[in-house]
C-alpha cells in the first residue's frame, strides 16, 4: 500500500502524526479505446476547437464558466492558496455516535497508520474512542479538495471515511412518485415480513462476488488463448530523409518544364553558369520582372553548394 497523504490528527492538545492509505480498491477491468482499423490504442488529445490545434499543458489553465462562454481564469498557485492552510491536519471537530450518520454520507475509506513516533498517541486515541463508542467528525484536505470525514475504529486500526457535506446530499423530497403514507394491507405485510425473516442471515461479505467481472475475465482469457487478438502495429516512422530523396528524384525527372520556363533546351550546367555570370556582370536590375528572380535563384544555388 502506498501513502496517499501524510499529516496529523489534532483534537484539543493531542497531536497524532499519521499516514493515510486507501482502504478500498476498484477492481473494474479497464479497457482502452482502440482504432478498429489498425488496432492501435488511441491517443487522447486536448484540442482547441477555435485555434484548431492541439494544446500543450503549458498553455492550459483552469477557468470557471460564470456565464455561457465567459470564463474567469485561475493560476495553479491561486487555487493552492485556498486549500493550503490546513492541508496537513485532520482536525476533529466533534464526537458523535456512528448510528447518527446515515450511510448515504459515506464516500471513501482510508486506513490511518501511526507515523514516526506517533504510536503512543495513536494507541491512546484509538482506545479512548473504543471505550466511549464514539466516532470523530473531522475536516481534512486531500489534494486540493477539503472534505468532511468520520474517524472510527476497525479492528485495531483508525479509519477515516470522507463524507459528503450536507448540501451535497439531495433531499428525498426530490424523488418523484413516492407513495403517500397510507395504510397497507395487513395480510400482505405479514407475508412480506415472513419472507424477510426467511432470507435473514448474518452478513458474510465473502459470499458475494462480482459476476460480471468473472464472466468478462473468462471471455478475455478465452480470447487470448484462442488468439482472437488484435495486435497494434508498430508505428510506421517514415524516414523523412529517404522520402525527400525519392521526391527530389521524381521531381528532377520532370524538371525541364517545371523550373526553367524561360530557357531553351541548353544543358543545365552551362545554362546555370551563364546565368550566374550575367548576374554578376550586370549590377543594375533589369526592368522586366521575369529573368530577374531567375538569375538570383541560380546565383543563390551556387553559393549554397560552397557552404
Amino acid at each position: 500500500m502506498h501513502t496517499v497523504w501524510k499529516g496529523a490528527i489534532s483534537f484539543g492538545l493531542v497531536h497524532v502524526p499519521v499516514k493515510m492509505f486507501s482502504a478500498t480498491e476498484d477492481k473494474d477491468i479497464s479497457m482502452k479505446y482502440v482504432h478498429n482499423v489498425c488496432g492501435s490504442p488511441l491517443n487522447y488529445v486536448r484540442k482547441c476547437p477555435v485555434c484548431e490545434e492541439e494544446v500543450g499543458w503549458d498553455d492550459i489553465q483552469k477557468g470557471y464558466e460564470y456565464e455561457k462562454g465567459k470564463f474567469v481564469l485561475f493560476q495553479k498557485d491561486e487555487l493552492d492558496q485556498l486549500s493550503e492552510q490546513n492541508s496537513k491536519n485532520i482536525t476533529i471537530l466533534d464526537f458523535v455516535d456512528l448510528k447518527e450518520i446515515d450511510p448515504i454520507y459515506f464516500q471513501k475509506t482510508y486506513y490511518l497508520s501511526p507515523d514516526q513516533a506517533g504510536s503512543n498517541a495513536y494507541r491512546l486515541l484509538l482506545e479512548a474512542m473504543r471505550q466511549s463508542g464514539k466516532i470523530g467528525i473531522a475536516k481534512i484536505a486531500i489534494r486540493s479538495k477539503s472534505s468532511l470525514a468520520a474517524i472510527r475504529i476497525v479492528e485495531e486500526c483508525l479509519v477515516i471515511e470522507t463524507i459528503f457535506y450536507p448540501d451535497e446530499i439531495r433531499p428525498v423530497s426530490q424523488v418523484p412518485n413516492l407513495p403517500e403514507q397510507t395504510g397497507v394491507n395487513e395480510k400482505e405485510l405479514t407475508m412480506a415480513r415472513m419472507l424477510i425473516d426467511q432470507l435473514s442471515t448474518p452478513f458474510d461479505p465473502s459470499k458475494y462476488t462480482d459476476d460480471y467481472r468473472e464472466r468478462l475475465l473468462d471471455m478475455i482469457n478465452s480470447k487470448v488463448a484462442g488468439e482472437e487478438i488484435k495486435i497494434a502495429p508498430a508505428r510506421q516512422e517514415t524516414n523523412v530523409v529517404d522520402l525527400m530523396a525519392a521526391l527530389q528524384a521524381s521531381i528532377e525527372a520532370v524538371k525541364p518544364m517545371a523550373t526553367d520556363p524561360g530557357e531553351t533546351r541548353k544543358p543545365r550546367k552551362s545554362a546555370r553558369k551563364t546565368a550566374a555570370e550575367t548576374a554578376k556582370a550586370s549590377g543594375d536590375d533589369s526592368v522586366e520582372g521575369k529573368p530577374k528572380p531567375k538569375r538570383r535563384t541560380t546565383k543563390a544555388k551556387k553559393t549554397e553548394s560552397g557552404s
Binding site: 525527400m244 521526391l247 527530389q248 521531381i251 524538371k255 517545371a258 523550373t259 528572380p293 535563384t297 543563390a300 544555388k301 549554397e304
Partner: peptide, 9 residues
C-alpha cells in the same frame, strides 16, 4: 534550397 530542390521557387 529544399523547396528549390522540389522544383518550388
Amino acid at each position: 534550397e529544399v523547396l528549390r530542390s522540389l522544383g518550388i521557387e
